[in-house]
Amino acid sequence: MEVSAVTSTKTVRKSNKRKWKQTILPWILLSPTLVLLLLVVGGPLVGTLWLAFTDWNGIANPEFIGFENFIRLFSDHVFFAALLNNVKWMGFFLTVPVILSLSVALLISKVKFGKMFYRMIVFIPYIVATVVTAKIWLWMYNPYVGLNVKFEEWGLDWLALPWLEDGKYALFSVALADGWHFYGFLVVLFLVALQQIDKSLEEAALVEGANKLQIFFHVVLPQLRPTLVLIYMLLIIWSFAAFDYVFVMTQGGPGNASELIATYMYDLAIYGQQPGYASAVALTMGLFSILVIVGFGYLKKKGWDV
């Protein structure tokens, strides 16, 4: 009887300990972050939601105007120009840096000696402060001292493009600068993924007579899918939140040629003294991010390896 009581007490203790470890402790450990998130993200989020329904110049009291800001969005050609630019920005980032970084990662993964050195070299641009990188590229694009001067000296006039002067090139030029800064991060992600793939499958394909391209597309690439999907998800979300390079290099100009939703929002809130309308613009950015996350969640539910 005593033995049974002792066993029962031990079981209860074990159960309590498990409960403590599995339910209470994680919440305690998470609580500082959650409190911080609630303050830093939750507060402004609620504020933005409220302000989006007001007419506010940032000084006087906000006036509730219902959905007027959202109705205005539909007739705001600058907003749609910025939205289209965000889509172009996304299109650039989903292709150029991804293809470039995957190619570089494949090359580095084949290198026998100095792998760490190459990895470090391609990663360095990513750790340089955004403003510094943007200023360096601004200098390179400068029509009086930058690349164009050298191109013209070397007789390569066809390469001396009006990088930031012409609206047709401005967005691409800024995206190129951001892409250069960013691709090193993708290289590292791909390198990690490449290290984890099953080499025996490549060897088997080789024995079966597959060439290098076939091995890449039918053996390597499918194994990189989880990483690629993660990268695509991040790139799509980040593309709609892009701000820094455009802000430093063109401030959305010339005209609105490189305007993005985030820079337009900043412009409205800070220079235009319309934080109410700017909040409505900001909410659209959040909406796109939510749509992307829901979309990927749906794909995962459908059995995709996300």
């Binding site: 609206g167 100009g253 010339p254 005209g255 609105n256 040629a257 412009d267 220079y271 235009g272 003294q273």
Partner: peptide, 18 residues
């Protein structure tokens, strides 16, 4: 302030025939 902001913010578009 509203007309001031509009004018400087959009003059580049006029220059560029947009």
């Amino acid at each position: 302030p509203n007309v001031e902001y509009y004018l400087w913010d959009n003059i580049d578009s006029v220059f560029l025939d947009q």
